[in-house]
Write a protein that binds this DNA or RNA. Structure first.
Lengths: 301, 301
DNA sequence: TCAATAGTGTCTATTAGACAGTATACC
DNA sequence: GGTATACTGTCTAATAGACACTATTGA
């Protein structure tokens, strides 16, 4: 008698059980995926000598329907019963960017009851990182008004309150997204409560001007994660073209981490994860820079 | 006219739209939570001088019904439409441990189509860490046969295959869970594919003796995450009683990381995150050890 | 007294931070 | 030639690894 031929208390084998199985009529939540698609873009400079400035950009879609009509939301959609979460995320990603084979990872699943005023929706957020030079098709040419927004992330204040056997710490983070015509802004309040040795973190939207649903929270969370992972993985190379200069790489680190780095230390640190090529930049208005590629065979540290 | 009084293409305000909204009859997946509840237990030694050995333990439940009748699964259950994901996880956690206020974090959401032979089920896994001394009620006294299993985690082999423009790396990890009467074992194959700069990681169950569903994958993932987070957060203190010795703390690090640490360096490293007390261990059969508590006001690094 | 663990001191190797200094194309 | 960036050398401070050494209890 094999394992699968075991019978349950009703004398049914697994096969018999499954044939009779009725999934029931319990009310079920809808499940969606929301995509945080980041890229790095550069703005041309007026001074021919200066390097073009870079900025982190996020793709948003303006809602043409209720709820949150007119506000901006992350691209996303429902997960059908016969597709995996990841397939749904890839489908959405392809719909928006027209490219396949993009770096993507699951971020977090949001499951509050009142996230969506229409009905119960649980949403898995996925973060994708795209090399701008690979984006052949501009967002915004499908029915939705999709556009890239420049991301800015500022820690406003952090307060701390000691309590019996622990403390409570609040942090406010202002997130501002801008494109040519629109500025969206909001504040996420992050509360960290420590009681004994139990630590709990809560995120709350404290201010919101233009973001649909709880998407501002997702954006804040994604940037936080991106900042963290950039330090101990090679995730950042997904935002860069195959060949890049070390200065370029450093800039991208800087805009993600929100702080300046020293070139000498930076170069030492990433030396192991890049390989130099024989190529150089040209027409730079200053000393040319050697081009490197991601040394895929070696991780950071 | 306020933002919310905007009307859509049918001339409806948001309120009117929501009143008429019909969620439709699309087939929806079921959503569950699965709990990875870890603790650290000690086995008494026969030599009065020796310290008791510690081990990492995971709570499992033996299935009394199809599918996977007789096999062991993570505790978990369905998320109802009127409770948040986190509430569902806390409910399950309380059901199993009878304690509230336990450290818990969302790990990952598994969304393959065929995860459950009965129907489409999407499951969010949550990891909880419990201090064994706080566990007043033994698992196993409810209807289910729940029990703690000692966890062992071994990297079997890692192979690498270079490919055009990237590589493919395979790693096999054997996970063995044992309690007094049962040994469960299995192998998870982790495939990391790098193509250009797109990195993709897949987990697959290569061998499975006794684990229900895809829970072996979840267990492997949880341990991997636990190992990672132990290095840069204070998460480990959730596994320890309020007062502990530095040797104890070091042992817990060692069993989680699966390697030995040097005492001197270890003490220097964690010095900032613990505070010494005036208390000592007693009747140890050797030099007593000072007791410390988690210095909640200061993080690692 | 001695087994077993607790805890410290110090040398060395490695790495991060700071900053000055040199190198180089292109207008 | 001068500007803006590319890239390197080196001093210093901080940290991790290694390991020997001292300290302390209870049977």
């Amino acid at each position: 008698m094999t394992k699968r031929a075991k019978t349950d208390r009703n004398g049914l084998t697994e096969q018999q059980y499954l044939e009779k199985y009725n999934p029931g009529i319990y009310e079920r939540p809808s499940v969606t995926v929301d995509m945080l698609i980041f890229t790095v873009m550069e703005q041309a400079q007026n001074n021919y000598r200066k390097l073009s400035e870079k900025s982190l950009q996020l793709l948003l879609i303006q809602r043409g329907e209720h709820p949150y009509l007119g506000q901006w939301a992350l691209p996303g959609g429902f997960v059908s019963v016969d597709e995996s979460l990841e397939d749904a995320a890839r489908r959405e990603l392809f719909t928006e960017t027209n490219i396949d084979n993009i770096y993507m990872e699951q971020l977090y699943t949001w499951g509050e009851v009142q996230r969506d005023p229409r009905m119960r929706v649980i949403s898995s957020a996925y973060m994708a990182l795209v090399d701008r030079t690979a984006l052949n098709v501009q967002a915004g040419d499908d029915a939705d008004a999709a556009d890239w927004f420049k991301v800015s992330y500022d820690v406003l204040e952090a307060s701390r309150e000691d309590q019996a056997n622990g403390y409570k710490q609040e942090q406010r983070i202002r997130i501002t997204l801008t494109n040519e015509s629109t500025t969206l802004t909001g504040v996420v309040k992050i509360t960290e409560t420590v009681q004994g040795h139990v630590r709990r973190v809560e995120r709350e939207i404290a201010e919101n001007d233009g973001f649909a649903f709880d998407h501002l929270k997702m954006i804040q969370y994604a940037i936080e994660r991106l900042r963290g992972k950039v330090e101990y993985t090679g995730i950042i190379f997904n935002l860069l073209p195959p060949l890049f200069t070390l200065s370029e790489l450093q800039r991208v680190y800087e805009i993600i981490l929100g702080k300046e780095l020293l070139a000498a230390a930076f170069r030492r640190k990433i030396a192991g994860s890049v390989t130099e090529t024989e190529e150089f930049t040209k027409d730079a208005g200053h000393r040319p820079s050697k081009l490197y590629r991601y040394n895929v065979n070696q991780d950071l540290n």
